[in-house]
Simulated scan of single mutants.
Amino acid sequence: MTVQDRFLIAYESRHYEDADWGAQADRWTASFYTAADTTVFGTAVITRVVPGVTPNPREVFEADPGLLDRIPRVIFTEDGGLVPELAKMRPSLLLLLESVHVTDDWRGKGVGMRLAVAALRQLAVSGTVAVCYPAPIHDHGPDEPCSYESDDPEIRRPDEEAVAKLQKAWERQGFAQFDQAVYIMALV
């Protein structure tokens, strides 16, 4: 990378139409590129939830979970409220980091993670809490078993090692373990 290469982030959002355009969570995609080369080399998908406004986010995510299968079960109660420990923080906004992906050339350099945190900070307002689940993204079909869920420790071990490394890396960014390997960070 040369001195004139600067990282840039472009945002795209998907809002779900309803009576007030606010009843469902909206998803944002932050795309990463450099000023010298406008080819996108990575993305972060961020779901925005306004506590008390988005009706029962847990129910919404059960219908359309994306990659957020664990996070909603950990941070929302059955009726869509915040679990007590998170409610104590009184967040005005939750930014759920659904995924971070960078191309092979950029993988392992921490660039995707730092840019994802920068993207979260740009979307934050006062009182925002960011939430993530540090784990590798798996490309498998709905009927194929996830290697992390395998009973065979030799199949599971690489995923467990990757999770441990990712957890430490997210901790260096300021995230702290919340519950069931879900991490949170107050942004503003």
Rank of each mutant, 00 (worst) to 15 (best):
P136D: 06
V45L: 11
R58T: 01
R73Q: 14
Y183R: 03
R14K: 14
R70L: 15
E85R: 15
L93P: 02
A162M: 13
G52V: 11
R73S: 13
A25F: 04
E98Y: 07
L86R: 01
P142N: 10
R157T: 12
Y148L: 15
D152C: 06
V163R: 14
V83R: 09
A118H: 12
M113D: 03
D79F: 04
F7Q: 14
S147C: 05
H15M: 13
V83M: 11
E154M: 14
P84I: 05
L67G: 07
F61K: 00
P51K: 07
R6M: 11
H140Q: 09
P51M: 12
D64S: 02
D143M: 13
P153T: 01
D5K: 09
L86D: 07
A118W: 05
L95C: 01
D79A: 09
F41T: 02
Q167I: 06
K165T: 14
L94E: 02
G110Y: 06
K109N: 08
R157K: 15
C132A: 15
I71D: 01
R48L: 06
S13Y: 03
T47L: 05
V74K: 05
V131I: 07
T54D: 05
Q180S: 14
V129C: 03
V100W: 02
K168E: 15
T47N: 01
Y16Q: 08
P72S: 05
G141T: 05
I46V: 10
I137H: 01
A36E: 14
P134K: 13
V74T: 12
C146T: 11
D151M: 11
R157A: 15
R172I: 04
L166S: 05
V163W: 04
T39N: 09
T128H: 07
A23W: 05
L93V: 04
S99M: 07
Y11I: 10
S31Y: 13
E17N: 06
T103R: 12
G112C: 06
A119N: 08
I71E: 01
A30H: 03
R27D: 05
